[in-house]
Design a protein around this nucleic acid. Structure first.
Length: 427
DNA sequence: TGGGCGGCT
DNA sequence: AGCCGCC
């Protein structure tokens, strides 16, 4: 019998901050997205004030000024490191871990006798807290979808105290399916909830009772799988985290609205280089690039323009110079004067494995030599940036103070990954 | 008023 | 290419 656990960190980003700044314990605290745009992690105290995930930060700035709530800029270096620590603890106490996101990990639960599952789940719950300081909830069930559901119950229903085990075909599973809202089921979003309501499916239980073939016909294979998983039949595999990405996107809001071509060009160059680095780190080549710009859709008083353009590369490459050359051309062609742009970015598409690149018919010894030089140059750049910090070596001129620099006014120290930012303890 | 990925139609 | 899903 397959059994799978899902360990989900509570208010993960907020919890990371609290580990190093205990004064935030018990207070309404939120962590904002990149660019301090909106709230993406909330402490329970902040949720209790009625503030929701995704609330724009500017809407609640008055509460910050009054000192009634605290908003922190996000500190991904810290969260990434804390996530690795959680994973290490789970690996130590379990038979296998599949990271799913920065704050969620699936854990193998096969091979435990029925009466041992709860004990083991409680042990994971306790050990992660003990060794990392991060509070987590644990859900265990025969499928990933049910494990997510169990986790949700563990988080929301106090009697579970953070740990919920659903044994195969149990009464408890039925009760929960009837209690949990459809939109809380993994894979069922807002739109599907609306469409399912039309045919009378309103709860997770209803979906579990539906005919999978009909679901497949009227909706999709993904939803059919969800339906089967709700019945305890495993059919969703994890994307292996080690599989290379199929496409790579780097984009960011400019710090302010801008129509200035030179500022935008700099930002796009930055994204192109960052994308090329990601490409090389997963040992892939791109066959095409996409560049996009976007005006601010919330400013209906301003003219709207959201162009994008795909350019094929002359040959598959991960050379920053070739990629920048393509992104530059694409930008040139989509940029229009007279608009204020909010955001821009680069996607690298049609990725292939660098090791399995077929030699093109048109390859000559000359281009082979070029490729070797390219690999050498890119390798040196990546190595310098790795050792000395990101953006030590870049192509093109740096432009300090440009509009597109990240806003992160209230970021905490990178306590666990920078020697000069170690926390200080007084005893 | 985020950023970045996958999958299906 | 566009939509939807997830976190």
């Amino acid at each position: 019998m397959t059994m799978i656990g899902l360990v989900d960190c509570n208010s993960f980003y907020v919890s990371c901050e609290r580990v190093f700044q205990p004064r935030f314990l018990g207070l309404p605290v939120g962590v904002m997205s990149n660019n301090d745009g909106c709230v993406i992690a909330l402490s329970n105290e902040l949720k209790a004030l009625g503030i929701k995930m995704g609330t724009p930060a500017f809407e609640i700035q008055h509460l910050v000024r009054q000192g009634r709530i605290h908003l922190l800029s996000s500190n991904y270096e810290l969260y990434g490191d804390m996530s690795a620590r959680v994973q290490e603890v789970l690996e130590e106490y379990s038979a296998g871990v599949e990271p799913y996101s920065i704050d969620e990990m699936f854990v193998r639960f096969d091979g435990f006798a029925k009466d041992q599952r709860l004990k083991h789940a409680r042990q994971l719950h306790r050990k992660v807290r003990q060794f990392t300081g991060i509070p987590v909830c644990v859900g265990v069930a025969p499928t990933r979808t049910l494990a997510k559901l169990a986790n949700r119950a563990a988080k929301k229903i106090p009697t579970y105290q953070g740990v919920c085990v659903l044994h195969p075909d149990s009464r408890e599973t039925q009760v929960l399916l009837k209690k949990i809202e459809l939109g809380d089921v993994w894979g069922v979003g807002r739109r599907l909830v609306e469409r399912l309501a039309v045919i009378g499916i309103k709860s997770a239980w209803d979906l579990a009772q539906a005919d999978p073939k009909r679901i497949r016909r009227q909706f999709s294979v993904t939803l059919e799988r969800t339906t089967l998983e709700l019945r305890g039949i495993p059919c969703i595999e994890m994307n292996d985290f080690h599989e290379p990405r199929q496409r790579i996107m780097t984009s960011r809001s400019f710090g302010k609205l801008t129509g200035d071509m030179s500022e935008i060009r700099e930002a796009i160059r930055q994204h192109g280089q960052r994308g090329a680095e990601k490409l090389r780190s997963q040992n892939s080549l791109a066959r095409a690039v996409l560049v996009f710009l976007k005006t601010n859709p919330f400013r209906q008083d301003l003219p709207q323009y959201s162009p994008s353009l795909i350019l094929e590369l002359p040959r598959p490459t991960n050379d920053s110079r070739a990629i920048l050359s393509a992104t530059g051309q694409a930008l040139q062609r989509i940029y229009r004067k007279g608009y204020l742009y909010q955001k821009g970015g680069v996607m690298l598409l049609d990725l292939i494995d660098a090791g399995r690149q077929q030699l093109s018919l048109f390859d000559t010894p000359q281009s082979d030599a070029d490729r070797q030089r390219s690999e050498k140059l890119m390798g040196v750049m990546d190595e310098l940036n790795r050792r000395m910090g990101r953006s030590t070596v870049t192509l093109g001129r740096p432009s300090p103070g440009a509009a597109w620099h990240l806003r992160c006014a209230n970021r905490s120290a990178r306590y666990t990954t920078r020697w000069d930012e170690l926390p200080i303890v007084r005893v």
